[in-house]
Simulated assay, not measured.
Amino acid sequence: MTLLSTLNDDMKQAMKAKEKDVLQVIRMIKASLQNEQIKLGRELTEEEDLTILAREMKQRRDSLAEFEKAHRDDLVEKVKIEIAIVERYLPAQLTEDEIRQIVLQAIEQTNATSSQSFGPVMGLVMPKVKGKADGALVNAVVKELLNNL
């Protein structure tokens, strides 16, 4: 079952249950997926679906941080609800320890010896964690481990 068909089914359920927040988020995700399909002129792969979901999640996390800085508690709660809804469609997120293991393997594979090897290490790590980990966390772990070499 494709992500779009899952979203369509969930959208129908949200309409029946009159869940406006869920319906709104599903429509936004669906629109992003369909826009990407139109842009590419073909069906999306599972990896492309994950990329779009990760982008949607990042936008919401960035918004959450901005709203928290501005002390907009009304908007903070709304975005937290949206994040929870988007998380339903993402694969299980990796723990920091799991990310560390993947980064250590990449460091070993690239024979990295300093922070100069950041690009090649990230190049190996990101495809493995795409959609399963926050990019900022991965970035921080890679920098930390490379600086400790």
Rank of each mutant, 00 (worst) to 15 (best):
T6D: 12
L64D: 06
I26R: 03
L94F: 08
I38W: 13
V142C: 00
G119M: 14
V103P: 00
E82V: 06
E87G: 11
D49T: 10
E82C: 03
G131S: 04
M11K: 13
I99F: 02
K143C: 06
K143I: 11
E108T: 11
V25C: 04
I81L: 10
Q109D: 13
Q101Y: 08
Q13R: 11
M122G: 07
L23Q: 12
K12P: 13
M11W: 11
I83N: 01
T51A: 13
I83L: 00
I99G: 05
L75T: 01
V141Y: 03
I52F: 05
N139K: 15
M11H: 09
E36M: 12
V79P: 00
I29S: 03
L53D: 02
A84W: 08
T110G: 10
L50P: 07
R27E: 15
E43Q: 11
K18V: 15
S63V: 06
A14T: 06
L23K: 09
L53V: 05
E19A: 14
K30D: 09
V76Y: 00
N147F: 08
A133G: 06
L145P: 01
K143A: 04
V22M: 12
K130A: 04
P127C: 03
L124R: 00
A112L: 07
Q116A: 15
Q101S: 13
R72N: 02
I99H: 05
I81H: 08
K39Q: 14
L64T: 01
L124D: 08
V125I: 00
P91E: 08
R61I: 09
K39I: 12
I38D: 15
D73Q: 12
T113H: 09
F118K: 06
N139P: 15
E46T: 05
A112G: 07
T51K: 14
D97F: 06
K132W: 08
T6F: 14
N147Y: 12
V103H: 04
I83C: 06
K128G: 00
R27F: 06
V129A: 10
V22E: 11
V103W: 03
D134L: 01
V142P: 03
R100A: 03
R72I: 05
T95F: 03
E87H: 08
I81Q: 08
E48H: 02
T2C: 11
L90W: 06
A136S: 15
K30E: 09
D49S: 13
P127K: 01
L145D: 01
V79G: 02
I29Q: 04
T45Y: 00
A140S: 10
N148R: 12
M11R: 13
Q105I: 10
D49A: 08
E68Y: 07
R55Q: 12
D73N: 09
L53A: 02
S32P: 09
I29R: 02
A136V: 15
L7D: 00
N35W: 05
V141D: 03
E47A: 06
K69H: 14
Q101N: 10
A136Y: 15
Q13E: 15
F67N: 07
M28H: 10
L124Y: 04
D97R: 08
L44E: 03
Q93M: 05
I83Q: 03
P91L: 04
E36C: 03
D9L: 11
T110K: 11
A84H: 12
E48L: 02
L146A: 01
L53K: 01
P127T: 00
A14M: 02
E77P: 02
Q24K: 10
S32T: 07
D62A: 07
E68C: 09
K132T: 15
L7W: 04
G135P: 00
M57T: 01
N139I: 12
A112R: 05
